[in-house]
Write a protein that binds this DNA or RNA. Structure first.
Lengths: 345, 345
DNA sequence: CTGTTAGCGCTTTCAG
DNA sequence: CTGAAAGCGCTAACAG
């Protein structure tokens, strides 16, 4: 049987289903949108015909009629950064479960691009999730005024946000290192505008002060292997015996840089990563902080979706905690007699 | 001055602009879409009124009327599989460059879900890219009839497709292993319905025959670490001294399984991965086949977009080649005198 | 060049 | 419970 295309576009419409099942178009519409208004028998019959025809409600038409698009947007700085795929995946699953489609944007770590993307997506989504956004507070406020907005790992008052709290786990990492005898510890940062990196930097500083050890801040160009590797020189020059890094990628780069310089990990130098994205597969396996990115994606989408329906008077700030995962890239500090890197004011 | 809400009730429409500027709605539409059909003076006047009113064309309405949403869909089996993020990233960049938005779907390796997703996306996209699709040929044909479609790593006649050819590189891998003295080699497969896996299985068989060595096929449950690990028993039982695996994930699992059983790689056993997604960071670093997934994503989207505009009489089958990357997981076969795994018919 | 007239596919009163 | 009819905002023939 040849398939007919009534509308020249190929997809069966509500009219096809109506005709085939001998009801009106309104009834078909109800069978999908508000089945409780219909005889169960009718619903079943219509659904059956719909399935047979391969009918799928046209969301664009629905959107025009109702003002709701059934789309939500998600913008991340870099899809290929292993931190994000689990987040994206969970977000997409949550969106799907709520019958929304996920439109994905990649800002390539560029605030301008991110702003453009957010504008572009705003017109065809009911709401946006911005993960690790690099936008200014003003731009974020502007977007939030226009559409429901949920931030991931960015803490702006007045906007829904879900935050992975690595501060506590970072402090655990510092305690872990100090217990191992390290007294001079560097923090190798991530992107300057990253909330996560600032949070971790502060945690390192605070812990160092409390534990009475030296903390040395080292910037890095970004959350990449290359940036980690490039930081090796400065890390070594600082005289530290251990490093806490922005994430596993930076840690991995640093590890490679240390290996190049014949510095053995963990016997001569200890390294702590963050996010546990490749920590288990590395050699030596990496001491790191546990990853919650999937949870963050799910929670963010759920929060966004629920903000559509329920009148949400209170802005929600959802915290996800993280913990230290000890593996093999950290160990006792090298004896001071041997290394040149003792604590020197 | 209070800001008006955009897309909700109260946003100025084409009718408002028409009324205010004393022209018909069609004229306003043309002033935006096809200004060359109008008197410059008219265009200017209409634009002025539109700007004064804060009018912004409603893309949803336009989409409903024209059938062009400016969206394209991309469905992958698993976003979190490291093979896909580069593909997704490149696809999204290409889409963005052509001024399209990318709607992402994750089928979770489930054909039913994939079919549903494809239907859902079909109504709000101008075309679809299906990467490593698990759908049957019939379903693919059905979808292709409905909307422009581009397949990645699936070879179906009559449908645009971009294929990463790993067959040649797989043969190189076999030659490499045979040169190292291996005479009994297993292939640890991926998903049964995966075109890529079938392609590689065939290549292994063909090469084995030509090189006069034994090839043993071992199925695996999927493209995962766990599946690779679970295959260890059978791999060892086969008496082989080397394995070519579906991808780096499976290879990684196998490596872990071998380590558990105190089988040393590469001295006692050689392993070849595929896709080079984590090969460099592993220990031992993995001999593998180079990755073209980013190129595949880019080419697929470009192909799709160009198929919208140009009348495309010929179906395109775009091949991307891959090559062997030798690292440290392959070496000379263990001497036959020692191991129990000599070639035995 | 510009206006008129039909829809695009779906939802939603309002009757029955 | 179900149907008829009126749009949502915009575009696209077809006239003039």
């Amino acid at each position: 049987m040849a398939k007919r295309r009534r509308n020249g576009r190929g997809a069966p419409t509500i009219s096809d289903v109506a005709e085939q099942s001998g009801v009106s178009r309104a009834t078909v519409s109800r069978a999908f949108g508000r089945p409780e208004l219909l005889l169960p028998e009718t619903v079943r019959r219509v659904q059956a015909v719909a399935r047979a025809l391969g009918y799928e409600p046209n969301r664009t038409a629905r959107a025009l009629s109702t003002g709701r698009h059934g789309n939500i947007g998600l913008i991340v700085p870099d899809i290929a950064n292993p931190f994000f795929p689990p987040l994206i995946r969970a977000a997409q699953a949550a969106a799907d479960a709520a019958d929304y489609c996920l439109i994905l944007g990649d800002s390539n770590e560029d605030p301008e691009r991110e702003d453009l993307l957010a504008n572009k997506l705003a017109v065809q989504t009911e709401g946006l999730v911005l993960a690790s956004t690099r936008l200014s507070v003003e731009r974020l406020r502007a977007h939030a005024e226009r559409r429901p907005l949920v931030l991931v790992n960015r803490d702006v008052a007045g906007i829904h946000r879900v935050l992975i709290d690595t501060a506590t786990a970072t402090i655990s990492a510092m305690e872990h290192l100090v217990e191992l005898g390290h007294t001079r510890i560097t923090y190798v940062g991530g992107p300057a505008t990253s909330w996560s990196s600032q949070q971790r930097r502060r945690a390192v500083n605070r812990a160092a002060k409390r534990l009475r050890v030296e903390a040395i801040m080292i910037p890095s160009r970004g959350p990449t292997y290359a940036a980690g590797m490039a930081s090796t020189e400065m890390v070594l020059a600082s005289g530290a015996t251990a490093a806490v890094t922005f994430d596993d990628l930076v840690a991995q780069g640093l590890l490679a840089g240390l290996a190049d310089r014949k510095v053995e990990v963990p016997s001569q130098f200890s390294v702590v990563g963050c996010d546990d994205v490749l920590a288990a597969t590395m050699h030596p396996s990496l001491t790191t902080l546990s990853n919650r990115s999937a949870d963050a994606g799910r929670v963010a989408v759920d929060l966004l979706v629920s903000s559509f329906t329920t009148e949400q008077p209170a802005v929600i700030r959802h915290l996800l905690d993280s913990s230290l995962v000890v593996r093999n890239s950290t160990s006792l500090a090298p004896s001071r007699a041997c290394g040149g890197g003792g604590p020197a004011a």
